[in-house]
Design a protein around this nucleic acid. Sequence first.
DNA 1: AGACTGACGGACC
DNA 2: AGGTCCGCCAGTC
Length: 112
Amino acid sequence: MRDRIVKAIRMVPRGHVSSYGSIARAAGSPGAARQVAWTLHSSPFGLPWHRIVGAGGEIKLRGDSAFEQRLRLEAEGVTFRGRRVNMRLHEFRFPRPNKNSPRKKVRKTTRK
DNA sequence: AGACTGACGGACC
DNA sequence: AGGTCCGCCAGTC
């Protein structure tokens, strides 16, 4: 599965970013956002790890790494809005394996 | 096997 | 904007 995640990540074009959740779905495992992060962290495969941010473009990294990621992204032309990325301009949408692309999740949990 | 943990996400408060 | 909770998945202890 790491393979699919990696593949998904590699399709994020330069200057764009994506979220863990999106990657997870693109990899075929919706809900495995954590796994994506984990995999990313354990695969220094020369992956564009800096292009992966949290939901809403938030950088969920810790201190130092977060800073580096931000620099890298800015170097690719990604702009920031405070501590998060301008998703409106840089979010990369993966082609849905299915039907149209209504919206991401179909709001479910009517509350836990 | 069970519990904890992590670069998460989304809903609530 | 910030904090809490529950749900997810895989790796470690």
